[in-house]
Design a protein around this nucleic acid. Structure first.
Length: 455
DNA sequence: TCTGGGGTCCTAGGACCC
DNA sequence: TCTGGGGTCCTAGGACCC
């Protein structure tokens, strides 16, 4: 918790639905539901008009159809459009401070302390008001709710207090007055399971939570989570705003319209998912060592099976073959409603093709999935965004270096020499001239704290 | 026609190593 | 003669978030 209200949280209101209503005037003022439109779909976002009828995020689309009147628009989603609008907003936030942490397409934290701002309550209130206006202007009318406080916790609580189109500044010193009357479920990290256990020991509000001992909370929720709850109930929150959280895994999963049992059909599904995952890995110059198969059975029981390979891979055939083996071991009895393929344990090493970029176009891998609205093609990934030792690296006074990757957004990779203090992680932009310095030949990439492979 | 898809973090047990 | 202890890696699952 800081002495000044210098952390801002922005939450765009009913974001996906708002973009649809902006782009299609006929939808304005009408209930709009964005999400899965198939038999097993769920709601991603309901416009405020749809919420009036009881439609909610995470509700099955079937339930939302029952609740909403004729004339409600049910849309499959246009993620490229949402991303474009999100990018516009995030750029506005970066004008406020270099420390912007997107939490999703429609949410972000900003550390105003890293910018040049009047951090008085009056000052940040004016800043918040101006920001909301600029967002609406730049996006064609998308609104957002802003919270500003002395920590991420208070900023997020603030943005939630006056939705939609709200602005709440929690002045320094007022944290507990705001926090304690709220239900515990408003704290991040208190989901259905934790809420149920807390209710069983009589905890309904944050004030109730603050009355519990650390020992009680640790035994209820585990060491890390319990200690976290204990601190949050006291408004103790030092979490920094981190502009680039490294990507740790890449996955694709799909719920089928009908349960599947046929291993041949499921094998083809695995191939298609592995192709998508491999493509995304290559686009961001990542490879990973651990392949995970996720499956959900007919009765909704969910399990994962994983295998760690000796070398990292981004090869769809390799990923698919591993996942197929895991599926054969796990079995398909009773039918599967969902399959997923993921790769984790990422490093920047791309095997095999480091020096042959032009290995032809990728095979079409998503002909089997026909989204309600076609996705726009992704921009081609420039060859120079791929990394290999000696290329595109910069160092600073700590002896650490970074590259910039594309495809998964900006990716920060740290390089460490054998005897070097790692130093803080920084981000470079694609057009940064420092990208073309050379690195010492014996340095190794370190991604997510784990050493990458020699290339 | 109940229950998406993309992630992150944590826990816990066993293997293995020193 | 008796039964260490710490650390890391791997696997699996659970809770949570947007």
């Amino acid at each position: 918790m800081r002495r000044e209200a210098s952390i801002l949280h922005l939450d765009l209101d009913a974001f996906f639905a708002a973009v649809e209503q902006r782009d299609k005037p006929s939808l304005r003022g009408r209930p709009v539901v964005v999400g899965g439109v198939g038999g097993r779909g769920v709601v991603a976002t309901a416009s405020y008009e749809a919420r009036a009828y009881g439609a909610r995020s995470a509700m099955s689309t079937a339930e939302a159809r029952r609740r909403c009147p004729a004339g409600t628009a049910f849309l499959g989603g246009r993620f490229a459009a949402y991303r474009r609008t999100s990018d516009v907003v995030m750029e506005l936030l970066r004008e406020l401070s270099p420390l912007v942490e997107p939490a999703s397409l429609d949410e972000a934290y900003v550390d105003l302390g890293a910018g040049d701002h009047d951090l008085s309550v009056a000052g940040v209130t004016a800043l918040g008001r101006a920001l909301k206006e600029r967002i609406a202007d730049a996006t064609g009318g998308v609104t957002g709710s802003v919270g500003i406080g002395t920590s991420k916790l208070m900023a997020k609580i603030g943005s939630d207090l006056d939705k939609p189109d709200g602005l709440v500044v929690v002045p320094p010193g007022a944290e507990l007055d705001v926090l304690h009357p709220l239900p515990v479920t408003r704290l991040g990290g208190v989901g259905p399971a934790t809420a149920e256990r807390l209710h069983q020991i009589g905890v309904k509000t944050v004030a109730d939570l603050a009355a519990k001992s650390l020992t009680d909370l640790v035994s209820l929720a585990g060491r890390a989570h319990g200690a976290g709850l204990y601190a949050l109930a006291r408004a103790e929150d030092d979490r920094p705003v981190v502009p680039d959280r490294g990507v740790k895994s890449v996955s694709h999963e799909e719920t089928f319209e009908r349960d599947l049992t046929d291993l041949v059909v499921l094998g083809r599904e695995i191939d298609a998912m592995a192709a998508r995952v491999g493509k995304r890995l290559r686009a961001s110059a990542f490879s990973g060592r651990t392949v995970t198969l996720k499956l959900r059975r007919y009765d909704f029981t969910t399990l994962t099976r994983s295998q760690t390979l000796p070398q990292p891979t981004d090869d769809p055939r390799h990923i698919a073959a591993t996942a197929r083996r895991l599926l054969a071991d796990a079995g398909t009895s009773g039918g599967l409603r969902l399959l997923g393929v993921g790769v984790s344990g990422l490093s920047v090493y791309a095997q095999g093709d480091l020096f042959s970029e032009d290995d032809g176009p990728e095979p079409a891998d998503d002909a089997d999935t026909a989204p309600a609205v076609p996705e726009e093609p992704e921009p081609p990934v420039p060859a120079e965004s791929r990394w290999w030792p000696g290329q595109d690296v910069r160092h600073d006074e700590h002896g650490a270096g970074w590259v910039w990757g594309r495809g998964l957004g900006r990716v920060t990779v740290r390089f460490e020499g054998p005897t070097t203090d790692p130093g803080p992680v920084r981000t470079l932009r694609a057009d940064d001239p420092g990208l073309h310095a050379a690195d010492p030949p014996d340095w190794r990439p370190v991604v997510n704290g784990r050493a990458g492979s020699d290339a």
